[in-house]
């Protein structure tokens, strides 16, 4: 239908161009009216704050007081203050969590590609945590980890007495691992749904042909599934760097960043709104943005050079096409890791 419409339109094209002249004011009018509000909002709530942020980051100021110019001091503080530097260390835990999360998501998505009865139920169960709001996730796991409550009771079922259970949220050796586990719980299902989407974009006949040719599941995984999603995996790994710095709500509710669990955003929130050190908080935000921009550039370079022709000899054209499709999907979307 659209094909015939196109040819019709082509026929009418000459008539069209003569009409365009008359439509010129209409054209300008529509451009201006349709873009005015979105651009105004973009300027007021994104770019003006952004420029202000750059300016503030060189001042030692509070919300109301303009303060004094301090040069690069705030930036030096970002890397030398113990609490902020500590939060960068904490984010390493979250990156580790992101790797575990991607591995789990990949594992379960692969299991689901090989047909299983009731897979839509498993998928829904694993995905649902993603839709729960961060504050609720915080409360759920505050309860989960509290001494003598859910986790300790579960361990009790396996014969581990309460005295042997560590204080999950107070013990500084493990509390960050416990908090990262909440992130893994929250986002694994969402990652899995994304992977599954990419895997399903491979032509189903490919799997059938492969199994007719006697390819085992491992071979199918290695030669069909993995190539179709390697782009989306790399993309998620890169995104996890900024994602791990942006983790906020669960640690905010569960420990409020005490006992060495403050993520970058939790610390930033405290510095900005409790300590009112607006200049320092702005410098933190700019550093974060710098990291994100670097990641984005790195990601583009990676896709340009490493995946350029993308494939070993054994990747067929169809597979490459699927990989490209996945890449497109990923670049468009991309999983949110943590946050």
């Amino acid at each position: 239908m659209s094909k015939s419409a196109t040819s019709q339109a082509a026929q009418r094209k000459s008539a069209m161009s003569s009409l365009l002249g008359g439509g010129k004011t209409n054209r300008i009018l529509v451009i201006v009216t349709f873009m005015f509000i979105p651009l105004l909002l973009l300027a007021v709530f994104t770019y003006i704050p952004f420029l202000e942020m750059v300016r503030f980051s060189f001042f030692n100021r509070t919300y109301l007081d303009e303060g004094t110019f301090v040069g690069w001091k705030n930036y030096i503080d970002v890397f030398s203050r113990k609490d902020i530097f500590g939060s960068l260390i904490v984010s390493v835990y979250y990156m580790g969590g992101a790797v575990v999360q991607l591995a789990l998501a990949l594992f379960f998505a692969s299991l689901m590609v090989f047909k299983a009865k009731g897979s839509s139920i498993y998928k829904a169960c694993m995905f649902f945590p993603y839709l729960i709001c961060g504050i609720a996730v915080g409360f759920i796991f505050k309860f989960f980890y509290a001494h003598g409550y859910v986790l300790d009771s579960i361990l009790g079922l396996f014969g581990i007495p309460l005295e042997d259970c560590p204080l999950w949220l107070q013990n500084q050796n493990i509390n960050n691992i416990a908090l990262v586990a909440t992130s893994v719980w929250r986002y694994t299902g969402q990652n899995m749904v994304l992977f599954l989407g990419a895997m399903m974009s491979v032509d189903n006949e490919l799997y059938e042909a492969a199994s007719l040719d006697g390819a085992g599941r491992w071979q199918q995984f290695k030669y069909i599934i993995l190539p179709s999603i390697k782009t989306i995996i790399v993309l998620n790994l890169i995104l996890s760097i900024s994602g791990s710095l942006s983790a906020f709500e669960p640690p905010y509710v569960i420990t409020n960043g005490t006992m060495g669990t403050g993520t970058y955003f939790v610390i930033m929130n405290r510095i900005a709104h409790e300590n009112q050190k607006v200049g320092l908080a702005c410098a933190m935000a700019i550093v974060l943005l710098g990291i994100i921009v670097l990641c984005t550039i790195g990601q583009n370079l990676f896709f340009k050079y490493v995946f350029k022709d993308g494939s070993e000899d054994d990747v067929t054209r169809a597979e490459r096409k699927a990989a490209q499709k996945a890449a497109k999907l990923a670049r468009r979307g991309g999983a949110r890791v943590h946050g």
């Binding site: 007021v44 709530f45 994104t46 003006i48 704050p49 952004f50 202000e52 942020m53 503030f56 919300y63 900024s242 942006s246 906020f248 955003f265 930033m268 929130n269 900005a272 607006v278 908080a281 702005c282 933190m284 935000a285 974060l288 943005l289 994100i292």
Partner: peptide
Amino acid sequence: IPGIATQVTVYQI
């Protein structure tokens, strides 16, 4: 630009 990061200055606006 991460949403939470800019809120410091958005607050002022």
